[in-house]
């Protein structure tokens, strides 16, 4: 279980997160929704120690981790894998080496075990033919899926997805959402998914948190949120209704 207690984070004089508290239950899919710039990425990065909170606590099981050293965070990062908003692939390495990057450093595997793990991970995102390409030879959607495979290769117990489907076509979006759902069903992986996409949140989330201006404005199961009185939540829901009525090809801006 993961618990945030009164977490605050500012950059200079700008407060991004203001005493945020919530918990993530083991095995659930938690969606975090919010408009651009509300600090969703900052929140995820605090959990894996890429950024440090100014105050507040982060509990993983029964450890308070927010004051861990960079070395101590290594064990946290083995358990909690993060898929970044951008593909963040290493340009000078092939797809295979990108996916193998973490395995080479965090796990001692024999060469054929390693390549088995890499291929397995690429298969999960339907990209097993491309392992010898370089990132700049792939489309954006393919790059994003490689980056998901790179995180999955380490088999983390908790997965953080920072807008995994933004910028992807509808078919790939469905693939990725199904993948998140399957991982939670089969491997009991806990997932925290940051997104703008209320529709897919309603489809696969166990619970949803809505963030705005550094605060949590509402949270609950999809059914609970559908009854929400919060303006922002209603706004998100309206968008779902609109997109389901209008043509399905309508693209949302990232």
């Amino acid at each position: 279980m993961i618990r945030f207690v009164e977490l605050s984070k500012s950059f200079g004089s700008r407060t991004i997160l203001n005493k945020i508290s919530f918990e993530v239950r083991t095995g659930e899919i938690l969606f975090i929704l919010g408009t651009s710039g509300t600090g969703k990425s900052v929140l995820l990065k605090n959990l894996v120690g890429l950024l440090r909170p100014d105050s507040g606590q982060i509990w993983v099981d029964d450890q308070e981790i927010s004051r861990y050293s960079e070395e101590q965070y290594l064990s946290i990062r083995r358990q909690i894998g993060m898929v970044f908003q951008q593909p963040a692939l290493f340009d000078s390495l092939t797809v295979f080496e990108n996916v193998a990057f973490g395995l080479r450093r965090l796990e001692k595997l024999l060469p054929d075990e390693l390549s088995k793990r890499v291929i397995e991970s690429l298969q999960l995102v339907h990209l097993h033919q491309l392992e010898n390409r370089y990132p700049n030879e792939l489309s954006y959607g393919q790059q994003k899926r490689v980056s998901i495979a790179r995180t999955l290769a380490l088999k983390p117990k908790v997965l953080l997805f920072d807008e995994p489907t933004t910028g992807l076509d509808p078919v790939t979006t469905t693939t990725v959402n199904e993948l998140i759902f399957e991982l939670s069903q089969k491997l009991k992986t806990t997932s925290i998914v940051v997104s703008h996409d209320m529709k897919c949140a309603i489809d696969i989330a166990h619970r949803i948190i809505v963030l705005d201006k550094g605060h949590i404005v509402d949270q609950g199961t999809p059914d609970e949120l559908k009854k929400s009185e919060q303006e922002l939540v209603k706004e998100f829901l309206r968008e779902v209704l609109q997109t389901s009525q209008s043509a399905p090809t309508k693209e949302k801006l990232p």
């Binding site: 960079e70 970044f84 908003q85 951008q86 290493f90 450093r105 965090l106």
Partner: peptide, 14 residues
């Protein structure tokens, strides 16, 4: 800015 540095840290490298 493309989060590669973050990715490096998350994948257990310094």
């Amino acid at each position: 800015v493309t989060e590669q540095m973050d990715a490096i840290r998350c994948l257990g490298a310094d």
